[in-house]
Design a protein around this nucleic acid. Structure first.
Length: 282
DNA sequence: AATGTAGTCAACCGCAGGCAT
DNA sequence: CATGCCTGCGGTTGACTACAT
């Protein structure tokens, strides 16, 4: 899809900024600039590198296309499963989902989701993954309920120290600046969280074992508080842009279109009835 | 072969949060 | 404390491509 004209037709210039598709020369300038100065300070790129592009445009071009660690090519079935399951957890938080998929950008995932799921009809692969996900989550919750009594006794002894167990894996990145993250540096996960997530992930379990990089998903890509916020988001009024909750919705086990139904919650998200109960495990 | 439709994807826009002044 | 700038995010657009009729 990367042609001389790209998809935006001829390049135009507005307020001194070039818009439209990037040329190979511009790409080269941007790549050279990032190599020399690193990422960030995008607004100064135009001056330093001599690009007639806004900082926004430069950043977008780099993040979505020029970054060397990008994985080109189609989304694999495994990645598809991950996307679906992470979307079930986090809704349209594409950047968060993207962090669990090395080499994929939020834009890519967002586009993929829209084209594949917006109009319903998930693939059979997705349906299988989802069914297994829900089933295993149910089983896991039953086990957790049985264990909760024992754990509760231990917690009473240990106080709040359970939240002091912080993960240091790649997933607990410092750039977890998601909206609603109430406490800084709390990318923590009690041991039970890891277990729960791994089991609940269903198909993911196999994937994770094959690829350590994927562990960033299991190892709390978002903070505990953040996860709770997402899962309870509807009660809190939800976030902008439709980032809401799976807990607040009801009954129907259908796919919905987030855009077309006008819902403030995750429209195309499966209804994870009982997800609120999962929240209580964290 | 021509036309219509759906899918894909790069790039834009507006908004919100963080930070410096 | 208030203001403005920068950065990042999610939603949307629109041209191109592939497939169907």
């Amino acid at each position: 899809m990367e042609g001389p004209l790209g998809c935006w037709g001829r390049q135009e210039e507005v307020d001194g900024w070039r818009k439209g598709p990037w040329t190979s020369q511009e790409d080269k300038l941007l790549v050279d600039h990032v190599r020399q100065h690193g990422e960030g300070r995008w607004n100064s790129v135009s001056k330093i590198a001599g690009l007639k592009r806004s900082g926004k445009s430069c950043r977008l071009r780099w993040v979505n296309y020029l970054r060397p660690d990008l994985k080109r090519g189609k989304i694999t079935p495994q990645e598809e499963s991950i996307i679906v399951q992470l979307h079930a957890l986090w809704g349209n938080r594409w950047s968060t989902i993207a962090r669990s998929l090395p080499g994929r950008t939020d834009n890519e995932i967002k586009n993929y989701w829209r084209t594949h799921f917006k109009k319903g009809k998930p693939s059979k692969n997705i349906e299988r993954a989802r069914a297994r996900f829900l089933k295993q989550r149910q089983e896991m919750m039953q086990q957790q309920q049985q264990q909760s009594l024992i754990v509760g006794q231990q917690l009473n002894e240990d106080g709040d120290q359970r939240r002091g167990t912080c993960c240091t894996g790649t997933g607990a990145t410092a750039d977890d600046d998601d909206r609603g993250s109430a406490t800084g540096g709390d990318a923590c996960a009690a041991p039970t969280t890891t277990t729960v997530a791994t089991e609940a992930a269903g198909d993911l379990t196999t994937i994770m074992h094959d690829d350590d990089a994927m562990d960033c998903f299991i190892m709390c890509p978002m903070s505990c508080d953040d996860l709770g916020l997402v899962l309870h988001g509807a009660a809190a009024g939800g976030q902008r842009g439709g980032t809401g909750s799976c807990c607040g919705s009801t009954a129907s086990d259908e796919y919905r279109s987030s855009e077309e139904d006008g819902g403030a919650t995750w429209g195309s998200l499966w209804n994870l009835d009982g997800a609120g109960e999962v929240c209580t495990l964290w």
